[in-house]
Design a protein around this nucleic acid. Sequence first.
DNA 1: TTGATGTATAGCTGGTGAGCTATGAATTGG
DNA 2: CCAATTCATAGCTCACCAGCTATACATCAA
Lengths: 107, 107
Amino acid sequence: MTAAHDEIFRTLADPTRRAIFERLCREGEKTVGALTARAGVSQPVVSKHLAALKRAGLVRDRPEGRQTHYSAEFAALAPLVDWANEMTSFWEKKFDALEDLLKRMDQ
Amino acid sequence: MTAAHDEIFRTLADPTRRAIFERLCREGEKTVGALTARAGVSQPVVSKHLAALKRAGLVRDRPEGRQTHYSAEFAALAPLVDWANEMTSFWEKKFDALEDLLKRMDQ
DNA sequence: TTGATGTATAGCTGGTGAGCTATGAATTGG
DNA sequence: CCAATTCATAGCTCACCAGCTATACATCAA
């Protein structure tokens, strides 16, 4: 349902959180400390954002000793793309309908 | 930059607002009154959401007499899809790199 | 002109969440 | 065993925003 999209949209809506996710996509697995270094916010905030991303299924954590490695879960973006494609599909259907109409008017 | 995505994500993050946008996509142009009828919120709230959607470029308004018709602006979803595709592209690049590595190790 | 209708705006309130500091918990090094 | 490091959690504050009602504004009908 729409509830599934809800968490993804809401999670990616925050710029700081989206930036963290983007870094994980571009640069691969990173520790909390490495992410904090250039996040522009404090370490607890980064941890909180990572927890939110994990709840949404957008990242995966790999604890190793006293540090935790996070990596992007690309597949989690699929519902978002599917949703967007579904929305635009209604647009195409309208064109199809218009095309149909014009074809009928032609006859 | 990311600021462009920012407004789109933030605008679509709200369930009520996204539902309104979805209805405009599925059912085409609608007046404020028609949208309010099944929105589950008051008319001023619907108007406010429509204003937000318009600011984000997601809808277009067509005033006609005392009522205003709104319709979806499908093209506005493009940046969202592009962003998602860009993110997943990093995933594919990693596979390419891995493939490269394995190929080299084979030699 | 007057009243009714459709939409937008103003102003308020409550809830949510992003940021902070302080601290707890777990692990590593000496 | 002790100190340092790394991360997560707790508790707080502040700003923002979705929702409401009331009302202004514009348009149509009679």
